[in-house]
């Protein structure tokens, strides 16, 4: 065997350092709480409620991103127009803005001295301290991940497939349903997972808009503040494990069937 260059060993060592950097804290956190403590935590109604709230608000954010983001992602993947770069940067804005700033920004349009806030209050929609507020915040932070993933998926499909479909008699809508969607839905799923994963992890923006009802990250923070590390860890473990299992199930259910021979 040929002798490896030092560079090769540098790449390997860096890899190990990074693995340890990511895994050590996570493993420590997951293994810290005792089994009895985990059992006790999951029986706690408040914990269950907040984890459930986290999951379904994140799911709603992903659903909203799917409905509104898919057409935009398609447009961005298929057309070139003046200002496209600008639109793409605007979509990426929520990723780079500090999370509390997101919360403050959303509150500022939801307030009574802003026209949108007035319309909302007249319609009886409350943003501050409500599930609606949480979903709005989570959609705001999760949407870019959905759009970017799906745009990439659409870009990976040759426009010629759509052109051929049109020439064979399919309308634009039929073409989307029969060709584009079947080829892109996997990337939509990836987008949904990315978007909801990002939404579940949001804390900074939610805590400003809605401390109550309490989503899991807020509860973890509150328990840490009030009782310390030991009491916040079990909730965190449950949140992480439930999310992992959910994403895993989603992946398995939709994994490609081995039909090609």
């Amino acid at each position: 065997m040929t002798k490896k260059e030092p560079f090769f060993w540098i790449t390997i060592s860096c890899g190990f350092v990074i693995m340890a950097f990511i895994l050590l804290p996570l493993i420590e956190m997951i293994t810290a709480p005792s089994l009895s403590m985990l059992r006790e935590t999951i029986r706690d109604k408040d914990v269950l409620r907040s984890i459930w709230l986290s999951i379904y608000t994140a799911g709603l954010a992903a659903l909203i991103s799917f409905v509104f983001g898919t057409p935009l992602a398609y447009l961005l993947a298929r057309t070139d127009f003046a200002g496209k770069r600008l639109v793409e940067s605007i979509i990426d804005l929520p990723i780079v803005i500090p999370h509390p700033v997101v919360g403050i920004a959303i509150l500022s349009i939801a307030g009574r001295n802003y026209w949108l806030g007035q319309i909302f209050s007249e319609l009886g929609i409350r943003i501050m301290g409500s599930v609606t507020g949480i979903v709005i915040v989570l959609t705001f932070v999760g949407m870019p991940f959905y759009i970017n993933a799906v745009k990439e998926g659409f870009e990976g499909i040759s426009p010629r497939l759509e052109k051929v479909s049109r020439s064979l008699g399919a309308s634009m809508f039929s073409t989307f349903c029969r060709i584009t969607f079947p080829l892109a839905w996997r990337s939509m799923l990836v987008g949904i997972i990315m978007c909801s994963a990002r939404a579940i992890s949001e804390f900074g923006a939610v805590v400003i808009v809605a401390y109550h009802p309490m989503i899991a990250p807020v509860m973890i923070y509150e328990r840490f503040e009030a009782y310390g590390l030991k009491y916040s860890q079990p909730v965190a473990v449950w949140l992480v494990s439930i999310c992992l299992v959910l994403f895993l199930i989603l992946r398995v259910l939709t994994s490609p069937r081995k039909k090609e021979t």
């Binding site: 051929v164 049109r166 020439s167 309308s171």
Partner: peptide, 8 residues
């Protein structure tokens, strides 16, 4: 395109 009867 779908109404032209032109295949490609």
């Amino acid at each position: 395109p779908e109404k032209r009867g032109i295949s490609i």
